[in-house]
Design a protein around this nucleic acid. Structure first.
Lengths: 240, 240
DNA sequence: ACACGAACGTCAACCGCGTTGGCATAAGGA
DNA sequence: TCCTTATGCCAACGCGGTTGACGTTCGTGT
């Protein structure tokens, strides 16, 4: 029977992540953290096809089945990876007292953390069941909002939009980056060509804005969406 | 060599989707549309594990390899599915002249269209390379915005946030619905229990808002985010 | 000092998957 | 009628997740 790491636990449990190390015959030492880090590295270097039990075992200098001593299956490992990404976003974030700047900072950190491992983000979005809850994040963000003077219902509502928007854009933008560079360029080229070739008679609005579209559509819309949310929240705070 | 349906085409091409029908030995007739519809049905009924070439062939009353006569591979079929979802959202939408209501309507339609087939949405998000472009959508939305008086840069910027936000939330919310009903309830129960059990000393903000969190966090944040975007756009229009 | 149980890693195997090449058959045009 | 093409089926290849049996090592209680 394989050792299950956390069962239905929704968040990373520090106690369980630090496992005591034990030297083995070959000298290799496996840890939950080590497996997660290796998986992240393989995802980054070899794409989604790097995330197989066999390749992972090989990269760890171990057998494929060894992974199952630490995780009940690849789905559970995927969950651990998703938790790790969120955890990294929170790691060095500390609210400084200005709620708007603090939230903007955290949002960009979450977004950047997922985009730093696009393949992992895509994998997490498709295989992880349920929302990725980092309780520390919930508590901290709610604290920032309530401390700024938002009433409880407004704080919860803003937090809800904030966190879901951050995760949603992170997943969407990660999908664009998850392709190999050459495929991405081909994509963009085809897309530009498609837009540029549309006759003004049938598609006047695209033809009129083709230049602007080409500039904008390859970037992320998340910063703009985030600023929108923060501006709306600020307006609400002034009114109250 | 299998018949490739669209190669690098970015959007559904109506001419290619309607294929002439020919009776075969068993009387079954395969079409691109029929395969896509069947795949959608199997995804809905049997989840992500229903989306295999063998099961799909079985459901079509044909062999697994038959699918490859119509699509170069499952990735191409997935792309066709994603295009179909966007196409359905656009199908019965027609701007009525009030830009804000029109965009809100379209946004909710896109969201609903993806959420009507959560498994397909998750699949599309993870396997489709590049953004799902429905050129008709681009043209129509840009037309609405420019017609409402937005200058070109503002129209493009607002369209960008609008479409990415819609797709991003659709994918995120679909992931929650993509689980079997019992797993979803278990998830929510565990989550509530986790929040309810947190002591007020260590997590005062969660403890103070637990009731509100339970009410809000299981719903979609998309309508709120959409209204935020539209309100900000309206404010911008008044200023100009 | 020693035996015992748990933790850990390996080996071999099972079954299902995507995909392909070769073959048979039917439709439609010459 | 014959030939081309479209279409479907069969068998097979390689690879994937996962599991159960087995050996080995380590900490621990006696």
């Amino acid at each position: 029977m394989p050792v299950r790491v956390g069962g239905m636990a929704k968040t990373a449990v520090p106690e369980e992540r630090r496992r005591r190390r034990r030297p083995t015959k070959q000298g290799t030492v496996l840890t939950h953290d080590l497996i997660v880090d290796t998986a992240l590295r393989m995802l980054r270097e070899h794409g989604a096809q790097g995330f197989t039990a066999r390749r992972l075992g090989l990269a760890l200098g171990a057998d494929a089945s060894t992974v199952y001593r630490y995780f009940a299956g690849l789905d559970e490992l995927t969950r651990a990876i998703a938790d790790e990404l969120m955890h990294r976003a929170m790691r060095r974030w500390a609210p400084a007292g200005a709620w708007r700047a603090d939230l903007r900072d955290l949002g960009l950190r979450i977004h950047a953390s997922y985009l730093a491992h696009p393949q992992a983000a895509v994998l997490a979005a498709s295989r992880v069941s349920g929302r990725v809850h980092e309780i520390a994040a919930d508590e901290a963000v709610l604290g920032v909002l309530r401390g700024a003077g938002f009433a409880d219902p407004a704080a919860v509502r803003i937090y809800h939009v904030f966190i879901d928007q951050s995760l949603a854009f992170a997943a969407l933008d990660a999908a664009s980056l998850a392709l190999p560079a050459d495929a991405r360029e081909t994509d963009e080229a085809v897309w530009h060509a498609t837009y540029a070739r549309l006759p003004a008679e049938t598609h006047p609005n695209i033809a009129a804005t083709a230049q602007l579209l080409a500039q904008r559509m390859n970037a992320s819309a998340y910063p703009a969406a985030l600023d929108l949310l923060l501006a709306a929240a600020a307006a609400e705070l002034v009114d109250a």
